[in-house]
């Protein structure tokens, strides 16, 4: 399985990773190598195998509907990289 430049760029855009040209070149090779190794999975016949979504034999874990304040807002705002209490502040979305 080989990964081309375009795929690297598409995946990086999905993951919101800004990559340099050099990083992209390296990733093309590295990801291709790893996916070659991973390709051996396709040798296994798994037509009748159920995917394993959760390793635990447990289901139906709930919490009861009771509200209680956590009181962490001011602490989180204090360490936030952009805040104007009581709000977090972000630059506007591009072109909006």
């Amino acid at each position: 399985m080989s990964i081309d430049r375009k795929t690297v760029e598409h995946v990086a855009a999905l993951a919101r990773l800004g990559l340099t040209g050099e990083e992209k070149t390296k990733l093309e090779a590295e990801l291709s190598g790893i996916l070659d190794h991973v390709a051996q999975l396709s040798k296994l016949e798994t037509g009748k195998v159920e995917p394993l979504y959760h390793i635990l034999p447990i289901q139906n874990v709930f919490r009861e509907d009771a509200a209680s304040p956590a009181g962490v807002r001011d602490d989180v705002l204090k360490h936030a990289p952009g805040a104007r209490p009581p709000f977090f502040v972000v630059p506007n979305v591009l072109d909006e």
Binding site: F87, F88, V89, V90, P91, N92
Partner: peptide, 11 residues
């Protein structure tokens, strides 16, 4: 003091 093109976030 709020620069142009800023959004506030309320969670």
């Amino acid at each position: 003091g709020v620069p142009k093109g800023t959004s506030f976030v309320d969670y």
